[in-house]
Simulated assay, not measured.
Amino acid sequence: MATTSASRGQETRQRLLDAAVALVPELGWGGVTTRLVAERAGVAPGVVHYHFASVTDLLVAAGTGFSGALLDQLAKELTARPTVGEGVDWLLGELSRYSGADPASLLVMEMFLASTRLPELRERLGEQIAGFRSCVASWLAERGYQGDAAVAAAALAAALDGVMLHRALDPDLDPAALAGPLRAMFGTTREGTTTEGTTSERTQP
């Protein structure tokens, strides 16, 4: 019986998190209320406060749950690429799936803006981004990148964020068109070899 009750509680909590993730892109971070979350999740308003101390706590949990899963998946997929050039091409291809005005992009942008006012959100987002950069830096080093891998990983992460911001303003911006300059930043060609002509990043047969 206790297990069943705990399972129901977890299901309800997840519905609240999912409702918050859906509402933030629609209404903005500050537009989400307890009543709206409860309505979207199909529960009584009091249930929200049973699971979360405040709407802000709910939004932080929902937002960082989404961003954490997204960054983890990106890192996993990226680090499976055998060369830096292929990794850059793959990342830009992934960005093409987002218009900058889609729900996922809007949620992340709302979170970045809210993090300037909420220390807890800023700290948790910062930890997630640091984890992503660390994975990218390790991958770059393993692929033979000769520069400061940590700095390069930070530059790549910032470039990806910038592309998405520009996509929101310029829907015609094609992320794939930026592959050449980004590959050049890492000293790689489309084929994965370094511009210095070494073979450290060639895909092995």
Rank of each mutant, 00 (worst) to 15 (best):
T203L: 09
M185H: 13
D18G: 04
R13V: 02
G93W: 05
P103S: 04
V32I: 05
E39A: 07
G65P: 08
L58F: 04
A130G: 04
E201T: 15
P175H: 11
T12A: 07
A130M: 01
T203C: 14
A150H: 00
G68V: 06
G197P: 08
F186W: 06
A176F: 13
S105W: 06
P45I: 11
S7K: 14
R35D: 04
G131Y: 03
D172T: 14
V84Q: 03
R183G: 00
P103Q: 10
Q146A: 12
E110K: 02
T34G: 08
L71M: 11
A41E: 00
E191P: 04
T34E: 11
L121V: 01
L182M: 15
D174T: 14
E191A: 08
T116S: 15
G187L: 02
L160G: 13
W29Y: 13
L23F: 07
A159Q: 10
G192W: 09
A179H: 06
R183I: 12
M185C: 06
A168W: 08
G187D: 00
L169I: 08
T203Q: 13
T194G: 08
F66H: 07
A20G: 13
W29Q: 13
A61D: 11
Y50P: 02
D57Q: 07
L106P: 01
R15I: 11
A44T: 14
V84M: 07
